[in-house]
Deep mutational scan, measured.
Amino acid sequence: MDLSALRVEEVQNVINAMQKILECPICLELIKEPVSTKCDHIFCKFCMLKLLNQKKGPSQCPLCKNDITKRSLQESTRFSQLVEELLKIICAFQLDTGLEYANSYNFAKKENNSPEHLKDEVSIIQSMGYRNRAKRLLQSEPENPSLQETSLSVQLSNLGTVRTLRTKQRIQPQKTSVYIELGSDSSEDTVNKATYCSVGDQELLQITPQGTRDEISLDSAKKAACEFSETDVTNTEHHQPSNNDLNTTEKRAAERHPEKYQGSSVSNLHVEPCGTNTHASSLQHENSSLLLTKDRMNVEKAEFCNKSKQPGLARSQHNRWAGSKETCNDRRTPSTEKKVDLNADPLCERKEWNKQKLPCSENPRDTEDVPWITLNSSIQKVNEWFSRSDELLGSDDSHDGESESNAKVADVLDVLNEVDEYSGSSEKIDLLASDPHEALICKSERVHSKSVESNIEDKIFGKTYRKKASLPNLSHVTENLIIGAFVTEPQIIQERPLTNKLKRKRRPTSGL
């Protein structure tokens, strides 16, 4: 017993010596996670971090007073192994002897410093981030199933929210409404489509400006004509009531908005009720001829604005009016007729031209339509002016008669200019590109209106002035400009410049 007691005391002394060697000089306990400095002193990692955080910048070693920084600290694995072995020896000594260790306080702390507990403390002390800490805590505590279930439920809930957000973003663009038309193969669909197009076009005519009305009406008319041609002859009974509906809707729209509806009346003529396609083609032919005449008058307007600064050229074209007008009339009417003589009366030419125009518009179905009313009214106005011209010709002399006839021709041009508003800008460009020769010939008609105004002003003063002067240069210039014009009389060319000069002198006297 005595020997055993001596041996136990010796073992205890050895353990105490080893414990003092492996103590931390700051906390005076076994080193936890030993860290060595540049001066080869060993301290606990937790104690050194606490010391360095007390001051900004480098701190001093507690043993040798040298500078220490966080970067200079290094882990010493050898001392950590020695500490672990010492703890194992102490545990074995207690089991063999059955005696508690003399320094129970220190031993209890040593026992608490088992490797499992050290790992837990290291995970908390090290600044490795929240995710690494959570992982280490889960690994160190596998015995708690409640914690695992809560963490898994949190992760699953987070994943569910992310997935639901993604699915919502994908589903939202798919919620856009999609309209699908289910059509049938019955023959009544074509008639319904035609009526739908006509009503939609009328609404567009009321909303859209004048520049786009003609294009819309032309497209709708083409669509309706194609649909009529596709149907068989057996379905004509269905077409006639639908066309009557079209007429009623167009008349109502014309009564409500007459000014807006006139812009599309000329282009919509071939959508009118037709028994066969031949009647629609004839109407299209007549409309094309009318559009040609209207576009020519538009060309004359532009030329008149350009040549208004040259009064000499405008005056020299006075007698070329009849010849150029004959050529335009021959090209406007498709019928083959002989040219009228140069010395014939211009009023007779106008009456013949009106007689040619009237039969074209005397179809029984055309008179029933609303768009032809505008053309009939313009023709009636022309006839009224010609009836007035006959009365004026009986009273005035030959020279005054010529000037009045020219004035009436200008009035006719004004009437025809009203129809110019109905034609589109695209048709003007096509006419100029296809028929430049006709445009040059028809330019002379509009330029002549300037000389007509001068004659009217001469009649106000009650006299006409003449001068025997020749202007050969002007006649040559005008002959080169206009290709299809005829030779003019030299006496009238000489008379016109004198009248304008005298007018300039006598205007201030009349004002006084």
Rank of each mutant, 00 (worst) to 15 (best):
S80A: 07
R131M: 13
S186M: 13
L99Q: 14
E181V: 08
E181N: 10
Q148I: 04
K65L: 08
P115V: 13
L73E: 02
N132G: 09
K65G: 14
G183Y: 10
Q169G: 09
E143R: 08
S151Q: 07
S76C: 02
E84M: 01
Q174M: 11
E29R: 12
C61R: 00
Y179H: 14
V11D: 00
Q54W: 08
E143S: 03
C39E: 00
L28I: 14
K55N: 13
S76Q: 09
V11A: 04
Q174K: 15
L99R: 07
L30M: 05
L6Q: 12
E188Q: 08
P25I: 02
E100V: 11
I171H: 14
L165K: 07
K20R: 15
L118A: 13
S104E: 03
R166P: 10
S177A: 08
Q126S: 13
C47V: 01
G57D: 14
Q155R: 09
N16R: 11
L118I: 06
K55P: 03
T69A: 07
S114L: 01
C44Q: 00
T77Q: 14
T161D: 07
K88S: 14
L152V: 05
G160S: 15
I42E: 01
N112E: 02
T164Y: 03
P145A: 05
N132K: 03
C47L: 03
P142T: 11
S146V: 08
Y130M: 08
L137A: 14
E141T: 06
N53W: 04
E111C: 02
A108V: 10
L51R: 12
C91R: 04
Q174L: 09
R170T: 09
K175S: 10
S146I: 01
I90L: 01
Q94M: 04
I125G: 09
C91F: 15
I89N: 01
C44T: 00
G57T: 02
V162R: 06
R163N: 11
I26P: 01
H117Q: 01
C91A: 15
S177L: 05
L3V: 13
R166C: 03
Y101M: 01
A17M: 15
P173S: 03
N144S: 06
K175R: 07
D189T: 02
Q60A: 00
K50R: 05
